[in-house]
Design a protein around this nucleic acid. Structure first.
Lengths: 200, 200
DNA sequence: TCGGATTAAATTGTTAACAATCCTCATTGA
DNA sequence: TCAATGAGGATTGTTAACAATTTAATCCGA
Protein backbone atom coordinates (compact mmCIF):
# COMPACT_ATOMS: atom_id res chain seq x y z
CA UNK A 1 0.00 0.00 0.00
CA UNK A 2 2.58 2.53 1.09
CA UNK A 3 6.23 1.87 0.42
CA UNK A 4 6.58 -1.86 0.50
CA UNK A 5 5.23 -2.55 3.99
CA UNK A 6 3.26 -5.71 4.46
CA UNK A 7 -0.13 -5.17 5.99
CA UNK A 8 -2.40 -7.48 7.87
CA UNK A 9 -5.80 -6.58 9.23
CA UNK A 10 -4.72 -5.25 12.56
CA UNK A 11 -2.06 -3.04 10.98
CA UNK A 12 -4.38 -1.41 8.50
CA UNK A 13 -7.14 -0.97 11.06
CA UNK A 14 -4.60 0.65 13.35
CA UNK A 15 -3.49 3.10 10.69
CA UNK A 16 -7.01 3.96 9.63
CA UNK A 17 -8.04 4.61 13.21
CA UNK A 18 -4.95 6.66 13.96
CA UNK A 19 -5.76 8.88 11.00
CA UNK A 20 -9.32 9.34 12.20
CA UNK A 21 -8.21 10.06 15.73
CA UNK A 22 -5.57 12.59 14.73
CA UNK A 23 -8.11 14.54 12.75
CA UNK A 24 -10.67 14.47 15.53
CA UNK A 25 -13.33 12.14 14.16
CA UNK A 26 -14.11 10.70 17.57
CA UNK A 27 -15.47 12.63 20.50
CA UNK A 28 -13.46 12.95 23.69
CA UNK A 29 -14.44 10.81 26.63
CA UNK A 30 -16.92 8.89 24.50
CA UNK A 31 -16.22 5.14 24.67
CA UNK A 32 -15.25 3.36 21.47
CA UNK A 33 -17.06 0.08 20.87
CA UNK A 34 -15.28 -2.90 19.41
CA UNK A 35 -18.29 -4.40 17.66
CA UNK A 36 -19.05 -1.21 15.77
CA UNK A 37 -15.49 -0.94 14.47
CA UNK A 38 -15.47 -4.60 13.55
CA UNK A 39 -18.51 -4.06 11.37
CA UNK A 40 -17.01 -0.96 9.82
CA UNK A 41 -13.82 -2.77 8.85
CA UNK A 42 -15.55 -6.00 7.95
CA UNK A 43 -13.58 -8.16 10.39
CA UNK A 44 -14.18 -9.79 13.72
CA UNK A 45 -13.40 -8.10 17.03
CA UNK A 46 -9.97 -9.74 17.29
CA UNK A 47 -7.97 -7.49 14.95
CA UNK A 48 -9.91 -4.47 16.19
CA UNK A 49 -8.89 -5.23 19.75
CA UNK A 50 -5.27 -5.55 18.63
CA UNK A 51 -5.42 -2.14 16.95
CA UNK A 52 -7.07 -0.50 19.97
CA UNK A 53 -4.49 -2.01 22.28
CA UNK A 54 -1.70 -0.63 20.17
CA UNK A 55 -3.22 2.85 19.93
CA UNK A 56 -3.57 2.77 23.69
CA UNK A 57 0.12 2.13 24.04
CA UNK A 58 0.80 5.00 21.62
CA UNK A 59 -1.17 7.28 23.91
CA UNK A 60 -4.02 8.16 21.56
CA UNK A 61 -6.51 6.08 23.52
CA UNK A 62 -7.02 5.34 27.18
CA UNK A 63 -7.91 1.85 28.29
CA UNK A 64 -9.77 0.73 31.37
CA UNK A 65 -10.13 -2.97 32.19
CA UNK A 66 -13.59 -4.33 31.37
CA UNK A 67 -14.67 -0.93 30.14
CA UNK A 68 -12.90 -0.56 26.84
CA UNK A 69 -11.12 2.47 25.43
CA UNK A 70 -11.90 6.13 24.91
CA UNK A 71 -10.10 9.04 23.30
CA UNK A 72 -7.53 10.36 25.73
CA UNK A 73 -7.91 13.92 26.90
CA UNK A 74 -5.46 16.42 25.41
CA UNK A 75 -2.14 17.21 27.03
CA UNK A 76 -1.69 20.23 29.25
CA UNK A 77 0.51 22.95 27.83
CA UNK A 78 3.34 21.96 30.16
CA UNK A 79 3.09 18.32 29.10
CA UNK A 80 3.08 19.34 25.49
CA UNK A 81 6.26 21.37 25.97
CA UNK A 82 7.98 18.31 27.38
CA UNK A 83 6.78 16.13 24.53
CA UNK A 84 7.88 18.67 21.94
CA UNK A 85 11.36 18.91 23.36
CA UNK A 86 11.67 15.13 23.52
CA UNK A 87 10.53 14.75 19.96
CA UNK A 88 12.99 17.39 18.82
CA UNK A 89 15.82 15.68 20.64
CA UNK A 90 14.96 12.39 18.98
CA UNK A 91 14.23 13.68 15.54
CA UNK A 92 17.33 15.84 15.35
CA UNK A 93 19.40 12.81 16.20
CA UNK A 94 17.69 10.81 13.46
CA UNK A 95 17.83 13.50 10.83
CA UNK A 96 21.51 14.02 11.42
CA UNK A 97 22.18 10.31 11.04
CA UNK A 98 19.93 10.18 8.00
CA UNK A 99 21.84 12.97 6.25
CA UNK A 100 25.13 11.31 7.08
CA UNK A 101 24.20 7.92 5.62
CA UNK A 102 21.61 8.71 2.94
CA UNK A 103 22.04 7.23 -0.53
CA UNK A 104 20.45 8.33 -3.76
CA UNK A 105 17.32 6.19 -3.43
CA UNK A 106 16.64 7.68 -0.01
CA UNK A 107 16.55 11.12 -1.52
CA UNK A 108 14.25 9.84 -4.22
CA UNK A 109 11.88 8.48 -1.62
CA UNK A 110 12.04 11.78 0.21
CA UNK A 111 11.08 13.68 -2.94
CA UNK A 112 8.20 11.34 -3.44
CA UNK A 113 6.90 11.87 0.09
CA UNK A 114 7.31 15.62 -0.23
CA UNK A 115 5.35 15.56 -3.47
CA UNK A 116 2.60 13.60 -1.81
CA UNK A 117 2.46 16.18 1.00
CA UNK A 118 2.29 19.01 -1.52
CA UNK A 119 -0.58 17.46 -3.38
CA UNK A 120 -2.46 16.78 -0.15
CA UNK A 121 -2.01 20.45 0.74
CA UNK A 122 -3.32 21.51 -2.63
CA UNK A 123 -6.38 19.37 -2.14
CA UNK A 124 -6.68 21.03 1.29
CA UNK A 125 -7.51 17.70 2.88
CA UNK A 126 -6.59 17.83 6.55
CA UNK A 127 -6.57 14.08 7.19
CA UNK A 128 -4.28 13.48 4.24
CA UNK A 129 -2.00 16.36 5.14
CA UNK A 130 -1.67 15.00 8.65
CA UNK A 131 -0.91 11.54 7.31
CA UNK A 132 1.65 12.74 4.76
CA UNK A 133 3.32 15.00 7.28
CA UNK A 134 3.77 12.13 9.69
CA UNK A 135 4.89 9.78 6.91
CA UNK A 136 7.60 12.20 5.85
CA UNK A 137 9.09 12.67 9.29
CA UNK A 138 8.64 9.01 10.01
CA UNK A 139 10.71 8.11 7.00
CA UNK A 140 13.99 9.52 8.22
CA UNK A 141 13.36 8.32 11.72
CA UNK A 142 12.73 4.77 10.52
CA UNK A 143 15.79 4.87 8.27
CA UNK A 144 18.09 6.27 10.93
CA UNK A 145 16.89 4.22 13.88
CA UNK A 146 14.24 1.53 13.52
CA UNK A 147 14.70 0.92 17.24
CA UNK A 148 13.25 4.27 18.11
CA UNK A 149 10.54 4.53 15.50
CA UNK A 150 7.68 3.52 17.76
CA UNK A 151 8.94 5.88 20.43
CA UNK A 152 8.89 8.70 17.92
CA UNK A 153 5.38 7.76 16.85
CA UNK A 154 4.12 7.98 20.42
CA UNK A 155 5.58 11.46 20.78
CA UNK A 156 4.24 12.66 17.47
CA UNK A 157 0.66 11.53 17.81
CA UNK A 158 0.43 13.05 21.28
CA UNK A 159 1.69 16.34 19.90
CA UNK A 160 -0.52 16.33 16.87
CA UNK A 161 -3.59 15.56 18.93
CA UNK A 162 -3.16 18.59 21.15
CA UNK A 163 -3.78 21.05 18.38
CA UNK A 164 -2.83 21.18 14.80
CA UNK A 165 -0.91 23.87 12.93
CA UNK A 166 -1.46 21.82 9.83
CA UNK A 167 -4.42 23.78 8.53
CA UNK A 168 -2.10 26.54 7.32
CA UNK A 169 -1.26 24.63 4.18
CA UNK A 170 1.01 27.23 2.61
CA UNK A 171 3.19 27.25 5.71
CA UNK A 172 3.30 23.46 5.84
CA UNK A 173 4.69 23.29 2.32
CA UNK A 174 7.16 26.08 2.95
CA UNK A 175 8.55 24.53 6.12
CA UNK A 176 8.98 21.09 4.68
CA UNK A 177 10.58 22.41 1.54
CA UNK A 178 13.14 24.20 3.68
CA UNK A 179 13.99 21.11 5.68
CA UNK A 180 14.23 18.80 2.72
CA UNK A 181 16.30 21.11 0.57
CA UNK A 182 18.78 21.41 3.40
CA UNK A 183 18.81 17.64 3.71
CA UNK A 184 19.46 17.24 -0.01
CA UNK A 185 22.39 19.62 0.26
CA UNK A 186 23.60 17.61 3.25
CA UNK A 187 23.67 20.79 5.29
CA UNK A 188 23.09 19.36 8.76
CA UNK A 189 23.06 22.67 10.58
CA UNK A 190 20.48 24.23 8.33
CA UNK A 191 18.32 21.11 8.27
CA UNK A 192 18.17 20.96 12.06
CA UNK A 193 17.37 24.66 12.24
CA UNK A 194 14.41 24.32 9.89
CA UNK A 195 13.28 21.13 11.58
CA UNK A 196 13.07 22.93 14.90
CA UNK A 197 11.03 25.67 13.29
CA UNK A 198 8.75 23.03 11.83
CA UNK A 199 8.20 20.82 14.85
CA UNK A 200 7.60 23.32 17.63
CA UNK B 1 -1.51 -7.06 43.56
CA UNK B 2 0.56 -3.90 43.59
CA UNK B 3 -1.07 -0.63 44.61
CA UNK B 4 -4.67 -1.09 43.72
CA UNK B 5 -4.41 -1.85 40.01
CA UNK B 6 -6.87 -4.25 38.51
CA UNK B 7 -5.26 -7.05 36.56
CA UNK B 8 -6.59 -9.21 33.82
CA UNK B 9 -4.68 -11.97 32.08
CA UNK B 10 -3.03 -9.91 29.42
CA UNK B 11 -1.86 -7.33 31.94
CA UNK B 12 -0.22 -9.81 34.26
CA UNK B 13 1.33 -11.76 31.41
CA UNK B 14 2.73 -8.51 30.08
CA UNK B 15 4.30 -7.61 33.40
CA UNK B 16 5.74 -11.05 33.96
CA UNK B 17 7.27 -11.08 30.51
CA UNK B 18 8.66 -7.57 30.86
CA UNK B 19 10.39 -8.60 34.04
CA UNK B 20 11.90 -11.64 32.33
CA UNK B 21 12.98 -9.61 29.34
CA UNK B 22 14.59 -6.85 31.39
CA UNK B 23 16.67 -9.36 33.26
CA UNK B 24 17.74 -11.17 30.13
CA UNK B 25 15.89 -14.47 30.37
CA UNK B 26 15.34 -14.68 26.62
CA UNK B 27 18.06 -14.91 24.02
CA UNK B 28 18.49 -12.17 21.46
CA UNK B 29 17.21 -12.79 17.97
CA UNK B 30 15.57 -16.03 19.08
CA UNK B 31 11.88 -16.06 18.17
CA UNK B 32 9.34 -16.24 20.99
CA UNK B 33 6.52 -18.72 20.45
CA UNK B 34 2.99 -17.93 21.47
CA UNK B 35 1.94 -21.50 22.19
CA UNK B 36 4.81 -22.05 24.60
CA UNK B 37 3.98 -18.93 26.59
CA UNK B 38 0.29 -19.81 26.60
CA UNK B 39 1.13 -23.12 28.24
CA UNK B 40 3.44 -21.46 30.74
CA UNK B 41 0.78 -18.98 31.84
CA UNK B 42 -2.07 -21.46 31.61
CA UNK B 43 -4.12 -19.44 29.16
CA UNK B 44 -4.92 -19.51 25.48
CA UNK B 45 -2.86 -17.69 22.86
CA UNK B 46 -5.15 -14.67 22.86
CA UNK B 47 -3.95 -12.87 25.99
CA UNK B 48 -0.38 -13.88 25.17
CA UNK B 49 -0.67 -12.21 21.79
CA UNK B 50 -2.02 -9.09 23.47
CA UNK B 51 0.93 -8.96 25.83
CA UNK B 52 3.45 -9.53 23.03
CA UNK B 53 1.85 -6.82 20.95
CA UNK B 54 2.11 -4.41 23.83
CA UNK B 55 5.73 -5.23 24.58
CA UNK B 56 6.45 -4.71 20.90
CA UNK B 57 5.04 -1.22 21.14
CA UNK B 58 7.17 -0.61 24.23
CA UNK B 59 10.22 -1.52 22.21
CA UNK B 60 11.30 -4.61 24.10
CA UNK B 61 10.27 -6.93 21.29
CA UNK B 62 10.37 -6.70 17.53
CA UNK B 63 7.45 -7.95 15.50
CA UNK B 64 7.42 -9.19 11.93
CA UNK B 65 4.13 -10.04 10.22
CA UNK B 66 3.48 -13.77 10.05
CA UNK B 67 6.74 -14.47 11.82
CA UNK B 68 6.05 -13.48 15.38
CA UNK B 69 8.26 -11.56 17.77
CA UNK B 70 11.83 -11.71 18.97
CA UNK B 71 13.88 -9.83 21.53
CA UNK B 72 15.02 -6.59 20.00
CA UNK B 73 18.74 -6.03 19.65
CA UNK B 74 20.28 -3.58 22.11
CA UNK B 75 20.54 0.12 21.38
CA UNK B 76 23.72 1.64 20.06
CA UNK B 77 25.56 3.92 22.47
CA UNK B 78 24.38 6.98 20.53
CA UNK B 79 20.78 5.80 20.64
CA UNK B 80 21.07 5.16 24.32
CA UNK B 81 22.35 8.67 24.94
CA UNK B 82 19.29 10.06 23.20
CA UNK B 83 16.95 7.84 25.19
CA UNK B 84 18.63 8.76 28.46
CA UNK B 85 18.31 12.46 27.81
CA UNK B 86 14.67 12.08 26.83
CA UNK B 87 13.90 10.09 29.93
CA UNK B 88 15.62 12.66 32.10
CA UNK B 89 13.67 15.47 30.48
CA UNK B 90 10.43 13.65 31.14
CA UNK B 91 11.18 12.38 34.59
CA UNK B 92 12.49 15.70 35.86
CA UNK B 93 9.27 17.30 34.73
CA UNK B 94 7.24 14.66 36.54
CA UNK B 95 9.30 14.67 39.72
CA UNK B 96 9.03 18.42 39.97
CA UNK B 97 5.26 18.28 39.57
CA UNK B 98 5.09 15.41 42.03
CA UNK B 99 6.98 17.34 44.70
CA UNK B 100 4.79 20.36 44.16
CA UNK B 101 1.50 18.49 44.57
CA UNK B 102 2.35 15.55 46.81
CA UNK B 103 0.18 14.87 49.86
CA UNK B 104 0.99 12.79 52.89
CA UNK B 105 -0.25 9.50 51.50
CA UNK B 106 1.96 9.93 48.44
CA UNK B 107 4.99 10.13 50.69
CA UNK B 108 3.81 7.06 52.53
CA UNK B 109 3.55 5.14 49.29
CA UNK B 110 7.00 6.35 48.35
CA UNK B 111 8.44 5.07 51.60
CA UNK B 112 6.80 1.74 51.01
CA UNK B 113 8.25 1.44 47.52
CA UNK B 114 11.69 2.45 48.78
CA UNK B 115 11.48 -0.18 51.49
CA UNK B 116 10.58 -2.80 48.92
CA UNK B 117 13.58 -1.79 46.84
CA UNK B 118 15.86 -2.00 49.87
CA UNK B 119 14.70 -5.45 50.74
CA UNK B 120 15.11 -6.62 47.15
CA UNK B 121 18.67 -5.30 47.25
CA UNK B 122 19.34 -7.14 50.48
CA UNK B 123 18.11 -10.36 48.92
CA UNK B 124 20.41 -9.52 45.99
CA UNK B 125 17.72 -10.57 43.54
CA UNK B 126 18.34 -8.81 40.25
CA UNK B 127 14.85 -9.34 38.77
CA UNK B 128 13.19 -7.94 41.85
CA UNK B 129 15.59 -5.03 42.11
CA UNK B 130 14.88 -4.14 38.50
CA UNK B 131 11.15 -4.37 39.09
CA UNK B 132 11.20 -2.32 42.29
CA UNK B 133 13.45 0.29 40.74
CA UNK B 134 11.05 0.75 37.85
CA UNK B 135 8.02 0.73 40.15
CA UNK B 136 9.51 3.51 42.24
CA UNK B 137 10.26 5.84 39.35
CA UNK B 138 7.00 4.89 37.71
CA UNK B 139 5.09 6.00 40.76
CA UNK B 140 5.91 9.67 40.54
CA UNK B 141 5.56 9.65 36.80
CA UNK B 142 2.10 8.11 37.00
CA UNK B 143 1.07 10.53 39.74
CA UNK B 144 2.34 13.60 37.97
CA UNK B 145 1.24 12.76 34.46
CA UNK B 146 -0.79 9.63 33.66
CA UNK B 147 -0.79 10.82 30.06
CA UNK B 148 2.91 10.28 29.73
CA UNK B 149 3.31 7.13 31.78
CA UNK B 150 3.45 4.74 28.84
CA UNK B 151 5.90 7.00 27.09
CA UNK B 152 8.13 6.89 30.13
CA UNK B 153 7.86 3.13 30.28
CA UNK B 154 9.02 2.80 26.70
CA UNK B 155 12.07 4.92 27.44
CA UNK B 156 12.91 3.11 30.63
CA UNK B 157 12.72 -0.43 29.36
CA UNK B 158 14.87 0.43 26.37
CA UNK B 159 17.47 1.93 28.68
CA UNK B 160 17.41 -0.87 31.16
CA UNK B 161 17.78 -3.48 28.46
CA UNK B 162 20.97 -1.99 27.12
CA UNK B 163 22.93 -2.77 30.21
CA UNK B 164 22.15 -2.68 33.83
CA UNK B 165 23.95 -0.79 36.57
CA UNK B 166 21.56 -2.41 38.98
CA UNK B 167 23.87 -5.16 40.15
CA UNK B 168 25.73 -2.71 42.37
CA UNK B 169 23.14 -3.01 45.09
CA UNK B 170 24.79 -0.70 47.61
CA UNK B 171 24.87 2.09 45.07
CA UNK B 172 21.26 1.51 44.07
CA UNK B 173 20.10 1.99 47.66
CA UNK B 174 22.31 5.02 48.17
CA UNK B 175 21.10 6.78 45.04
CA UNK B 176 17.43 6.22 45.68
CA UNK B 177 17.73 7.26 49.28
CA UNK B 178 19.24 10.54 48.15
CA UNK B 179 16.47 11.23 45.68
CA UNK B 180 13.67 10.35 48.01
CA UNK B 181 14.97 12.24 51.00
CA UNK B 182 15.23 15.33 48.83
CA UNK B 183 11.66 14.72 47.67
CA UNK B 184 10.43 14.40 51.25
CA UNK B 185 12.07 17.71 52.09
CA UNK B 186 10.41 19.17 49.00
CA UNK B 187 13.82 20.32 47.80
CA UNK B 188 13.26 20.30 44.05
CA UNK B 189 16.76 21.31 43.07
CA UNK B 190 18.43 18.63 45.12
CA UNK B 191 15.95 15.98 44.02
CA UNK B 192 16.55 16.68 40.35
CA UNK B 193 20.29 16.63 40.89
CA UNK B 194 20.23 13.21 42.51
CA UNK B 195 17.76 11.94 39.93
CA UNK B 196 20.16 12.86 37.15
CA UNK B 197 22.95 11.04 38.94
CA UNK B 198 20.70 8.03 39.29
CA UNK B 199 19.28 7.80 35.79
CA UNK B 200 22.33 8.34 33.61
C1' DT C 1 -40.72 10.48 45.18
C1' DC C 2 -36.58 8.49 46.32
C1' DG C 3 -32.91 5.01 47.25
C1' DG C 4 -31.49 0.42 46.92
C1' DA C 5 -31.77 -4.30 45.32
C1' DT C 6 -32.70 -7.28 41.17
C1' DT C 7 -32.88 -8.45 36.66
C1' DA C 8 -31.77 -7.90 31.70
C1' DA C 9 -28.98 -6.13 28.09
C1' DA C 10 -24.69 -4.65 26.38
C1' DT C 11 -19.87 -4.96 26.39
C1' DT C 12 -15.41 -6.74 27.21
C1' DG C 13 -12.35 -11.01 28.18
C1' DT C 14 -11.13 -15.66 26.86
C1' DT C 15 -11.14 -19.81 24.39
C1' DA C 16 -10.68 -23.28 20.79
C1' DA C 17 -11.13 -24.26 16.06
C1' DC C 18 -10.06 -23.02 11.50
C1' DA C 19 -7.47 -20.40 7.68
C1' DA C 20 -3.36 -18.48 5.82
C1' DT C 21 1.42 -18.11 5.83
C1' DC C 22 6.06 -19.46 6.58
C1' DC C 23 9.77 -22.79 7.28
C1' DT C 24 12.07 -27.28 6.77
C1' DC C 25 13.61 -30.80 4.27
C1' DA C 26 13.35 -34.50 1.10
C1' DT C 27 12.76 -35.16 -3.88
C1' DT C 28 13.54 -34.24 -8.57
C1' DG C 29 15.79 -33.13 -12.70
C1' DA C 30 19.46 -31.23 -15.22
C1' DT D 1 26.54 -31.64 -7.28
C1' DC D 2 23.28 -28.37 -6.83
C1' DA D 3 19.36 -25.41 -7.49
C1' DA D 4 14.35 -25.55 -8.01
C1' DT D 5 10.16 -27.67 -6.42
C1' DG D 6 6.74 -29.22 -3.56
C1' DA D 7 4.75 -31.71 0.37
C1' DG D 8 4.26 -31.55 5.36
C1' DG D 9 4.57 -29.57 9.69
C1' DA D 10 4.89 -25.58 12.55
C1' DT D 11 3.44 -21.01 13.48
C1' DT D 12 0.84 -16.92 13.09
C1' DG D 13 -3.79 -14.61 11.73
C1' DT D 14 -8.77 -14.66 12.13
C1' DT D 15 -13.17 -16.05 13.51
C1' DA D 16 -17.28 -17.13 16.23
C1' DA D 17 -18.96 -18.87 20.40
C1' DC D 18 -18.89 -18.65 25.25
C1' DA D 19 -17.74 -16.59 30.05
C1' DA D 20 -17.24 -12.69 33.03
C1' DT D 21 -18.09 -8.08 33.94
C1' DT D 22 -20.19 -3.76 33.57
C1' DT D 23 -24.02 -0.80 32.51
C1' DA D 24 -28.89 0.24 32.20
C1' DA D 25 -33.54 -0.60 33.37
C1' DT D 26 -37.00 -2.27 36.36
C1' DC D 27 -39.12 -3.10 40.43
C1' DC D 28 -40.09 -2.63 45.16
C1' DG D 29 -40.65 -0.73 49.77
C1' DA D 30 -40.39 3.09 52.78
Amino acid sequence: MQYGIKHNDRESICEALRKDLLTGKFDFEQPIREQKLAERFGTSRGPVRDALLRLTQEGVLVYEPNKGVRVSSPLTDAERDVVVSMRLRLEKFCLEAFIRDAKKHHFLQLSFLLERLNSACERASLPEVAECDLALHRYWVAQASPHLESLWLGLSVRMTMKYSRLSNYRQVIEEHNNVIHAVMEKDVEKALFYLEENVI
